[in-house]
Amino acid sequence: MAATPFVLQLLNALAALLLLLSFAMLAQRRVVTLVNLFAMQGALLCAATLLLAWRTGEGNLYVSAALTFAVKVVALPRLLHRLIRRLGVYWDTEPLLNIPGTMLIGVLIVVFSFGLAQPISALASTATRSAVGIAVAVILLAFLTMITRRKAMSQVVGFLSMENGLFFGAMSATYGMPMIVELGVALDVLVAMLVLGVFFFQIREQFDSLDLEKLEERGGER
């Protein structure tokens, strides 16, 4: 086995933890914990970016690490926690699919995305290319999280986690997106969050619930 530099080992470990957190989010039924897990994912992402910045010496990456920290570890989780408190949504109802079933699909998704990422990572020239598969897996698992939830709140967290995966993928494949894109995405996410927050209140006023099944029932009426 060829010796891998320690920094890369550390990055790989962070990637693996990211994947683990995605699974934890998939299994988690409490919305508050879900948000905390999301914050942890952000922190991991921030750490990975910092490490990569230190290794490659790219100044841009330091900025994006700071941005990640500010938006995904501090701002969004606080916002979400406040929303949860004000809306009183602490628990997601029983998920659409039982947990072991979801996990099984999750594992299959990981296999799928690893297979999918093999050609991509063969193309990429970065040292972290093997993590591309994990990034794809994180995106797809976040998608699955969104699919299997009923509450709008958990779906939003799933959506945000998906963005984490995208960010990580870009970082490991090409050492990050251009700065301007990154800024734009960060801003987008924040705005989207605010809009969704307003939306939640609207939904609740209309239906007395954040359960999305209520929306489905209304679907037929127009």
Partner: peptide
């Protein structure tokens, strides 16, 4: 354990 397997197969770590 399964995640350990998958991570090993992908990252070789």
């Amino acid at each position: 354990a399964v995640l350990g397997l998958l991570v090993h197969l992908l990252l070789g770590a």
